[in-house]
């Protein structure tokens, strides 16, 4: 087994990814204190203006400033994705660790629960859930969080099982350490690398899925702007203001690109022998 990406490329990918993610974070934080215009300010007379000095990215169908909306959208997008990934980490990692530690039926239970969650693609379960509980950011977080939990449980379990088979764990068990203590002292630290990498990937997936749900009108609710809803609104104005369909998509794509670059770079850095399955 050899490293597939040239050594010199690894830092570059990580740097590029980190730079994009940093930019996203910076824009989101900046939007808390400053945006060119209030993002929710409606001015119907100034609608669908092309980019100009006054409105860098133009205005939308209600005359709102697109640049400002994108900035606040970054914040909303990050908040939902962070919450969804956080929920996934909080539920998934302990479940995965427990499955690996318990073996047999506990393991089986976690695997079947995972099957059940995976049987519904994330977007579908989110559509169902928002139908049941109503549209909105919180319910999107719950739906995406459950999906993330299933992914993280599976990934953590796999990594943890590999650790359990290793000599030093057997040695620790032979010394009379209990499964809980082995899990916390030996297994958890050795699975963190995989979890961190998976987290960046899931973060990217959460951003895309949130945008897809907001596009369908089920995610973040107006007047607070979201990239997905901006795309949905832009689609009805494709003939008059085609650029409106470009900017929010670009924002989504650059965020995802940053996160995947970061994730891939971290993966190669943490685990050079990792088989990049390309999944997720």
């Amino acid at each position: 087994m050899t490293r597939r990406i040239p050594v010199s490329a690894v830092p570059a990918a990580v740097w590029a990814g980190a730079a994009l993610v940093g930019l996203l974070l910076a824009v989101a934080l900046l939007s808390l204190v400053w945006t060119p215009y209030p993002a929710e300010q409606v001015r119907v007379v100034a609608r669908l203006r092309p980019p100009s000095a006054a409105h860098w990215l133009g205005t939308d169908h209600f005359g709102r400033d697109v640049a400002s909306m994108l900035m606040v959208g970054a914040r909303n997008s990050l908040a939902v994705a962070a919450a969804a990934v956080g929920l996934g980490l909080g539920l998934g990692v302990p479940l995965g660790l427990a499955a690996a530690a318990l073996g047999r039926w506990g393991d089986e239970l976690v695997a079947r629960l995972g099957d059940l969650v995976f049987a519904f693609p994330a977007v579908l379960s989110a559509i169902l859930l928002t139908a049941a509980l109503g549209a909105g950011a919180v319910n999107v977080v719950v739906a995406l969080g459950l999906f993330n939990a299933a992914v993280l449980a599976r990934v953590t379990r796999g990594a943890a099982l590999a650790v359990w088979r290793r000599e030093f764990v057997r040695a620790a068990l032979a010394l009379g350490r209990g499964p809980l203590s082995v899990t916390l002292v030996h297994v958890l630290p050795n699975t963190l690398g995989v979890v961190v990498v998976q987290t960046t990937v899931l973060f990217a997936v959460a951003i895309v899925n949130e945008a897809a749900l907001s596009y369908l009108g089920l995610g973040i609710q107006p007047p607070s702007p979201s990239w997905g809803k901006m795309l949905g609104d832009a689609q009805t104005h494709l003939f008059n203001a085609p650029l409106q369909a470009v900017f929010p998509g670009l924002a989504i794509a650059l965020s995802v690109l940053g996160l995947t670059l970061l994730g891939d770079g971290l993966r190669d850095w943490l685990d050079p022998r990792h088989r990049s399955s390309g999944l997720l």
């Binding site: 897809a212 795309l231 689609q235 794509a253 650059l254």
Partner: peptide, 15 residues
């Protein structure tokens, strides 16, 4: 590959 993965399919659709 890197960029393609980052493009949400519904945005590609709109483009």
């Amino acid at each position: 590959a890197q960029i393609g993965v980052a493009l949400p399919s519904f945005w590609i659709a709109i483009l």
